[in-house]
Amino acid sequence: MIKKLSDYEAYLNTLLKAGCPLDAEQLLSVRTHIGFFQHERLAHEIVLVLFALLTVGSFLFFAACPDIPVLVLAALFLSLLVPYIKHYYGLENGVQRLYDLYASLEKLQ
Rank of each mutant, 00 (worst) to 15 (best):
residue 21 P to Y: 08
residue 78 L to Q: 02
residue 66 P to S: 06
residue 44 H to T: 03
residue 52 A to P: 00
residue 4 K to G: 01
residue 38 Q to V: 14
residue 88 Y to S: 07
residue 4 K to R: 11
residue 6 S to D: 14
residue 61 F to K: 11
residue 15 L to V: 03
residue 37 F to E: 05
residue 66 P to N: 02
residue 23 D to F: 06
residue 98 L to V: 01
residue 81 L to F: 14
residue 15 L to T: 06
residue 30 V to K: 03
residue 17 K to I: 14
residue 93 N to A: 03
residue 30 V to D: 12
residue 14 T to S: 08
residue 64 A to G: 06
residue 102 Y to I: 03
residue 101 L to F: 02
residue 70 V to N: 06
residue 80 L to D: 07
residue 107 K to Q: 12
residue 29 S to P: 00
residue 103 A to C: 01
residue 94 G to R: 01
residue 58 S to Q: 13
residue 50 L to T: 15
residue 46 I to A: 14
residue 102 Y to G: 03
residue 59 F to D: 02
residue 35 G to L: 05
residue 21 P to I: 15
residue 36 F to T: 11
residue 85 I to T: 10
residue 72 V to P: 00
residue 57 G to C: 07
residue 1 M to Q: 01
residue 77 F to G: 00
residue 52 A to Y: 07
residue 74 A to F: 03
residue 74 A to S: 12
residue 15 L to K: 10
residue 47 V to G: 04
residue 44 H to L: 15
residue 34 I to E: 10
residue 3 K to N: 11
residue 70 V to F: 12
residue 27 L to P: 00
residue 53 L to H: 14
residue 104 S to Y: 09
residue 99 Y to L: 02
residue 62 F to V: 02
residue 34 I to M: 15
residue 61 F to E: 12
residue 27 L to M: 13
residue 43 A to M: 11
residue 49 V to H: 09
residue 23 D to C: 01
residue 30 V to G: 03
residue 95 V to F: 00
residue 77 F to T: 06
residue 86 K to N: 14
residue 104 S to A: 15
residue 94 G to C: 05
residue 41 R to L: 15
residue 89 Y to F: 05
residue 21 P to K: 10
residue 14 T to Y: 05
residue 13 N to M: 04
residue 99 Y to W: 13
residue 3 K to T: 09
residue 66 P to M: 10
residue 89 Y to M: 07
residue 105 L to V: 10
residue 29 S to V: 14
residue 8 Y to E: 13
residue 45 E to F: 10
residue 9 E to G: 05
residue 23 D to A: 04
residue 64 A to R: 10
residue 98 L to A: 07
residue 69 P to R: 08
residue 88 Y to A: 04
residue 51 F to M: 13
residue 54 L to W: 13
